[in-house]
């Protein structure tokens, strides 16, 4: 599954940034996942639990902020949130002149750091799609 590949790259990137932290450990890795990134969040959580072992982020939770697909119709000059990713037509004019405003994100946004403590077994969570 490619979520494991993604998780490995995420852990690698997070560790690069965490390496400069001295007395702190990474409590959480916060990422943004757009609807069009085609990432299955539960699989990514599972992959992260595997990928984080033995690394600088081994104690970290993965916090996923889901971003909905927002399209803009260049004919109607309006933006709209799409309910799914299967139909990229404008819901108003049914035309195909749409652009993707949000939804392609697959970003490491920030790391939450805390003083080092005992082992934490929590994997993480997924938040509801953010309203833009």
């Amino acid at each position: 599954m490619h979520e494991l590949s993604i998780a490995l790259k995420l852990v690698e990137l997070a560790c690069e940034h965490a390496s400069s932290c001295q007395e702190m450990e990474v409590a959480a890795v916060h990422i943004a996942v757009g609807a069009l990134s085609h990432i299955h969040a539960p699989s990514l959580l599972s992959g992260f639990a595997i990928a984080r072992e033995g690394t600088l982020v081994s104690q970290a939770e993965l916090i996923i902020r889901q971003i909905p697909l927002v399209l803009g119709c260049t004919d109607c000059d309006r933006d709209f949130e799409s309910s799914g990713i299967q139909d990229l037509r404008c819901p108003i004019c049914c035309g195909y002149s749409t652009l993707i405003r949000h939804g392609n994100e697959l970003d490491l946004e920030f790391l939450s750091l805390r003083p080092r403590r005992d082992e934490n077994t929590s994997i993480g969570s997924v938040s509801s799609p953010a309203r833009i």
């Binding site: 995420l10 697959l106 946004e109 920030f110 939450s112 805390r114």
Partner: peptide
């Protein structure tokens, strides 16, 4: 309880590949 410190990253996860 000490507030967590935030380390901003704002980087695409697949940045190296991209």
């Amino acid at each position: 309880m000490q507030e967590p410190r935030i380390l901003q990253v704002r980087t695409q996860i697949l940045k190296k590949n991209d």
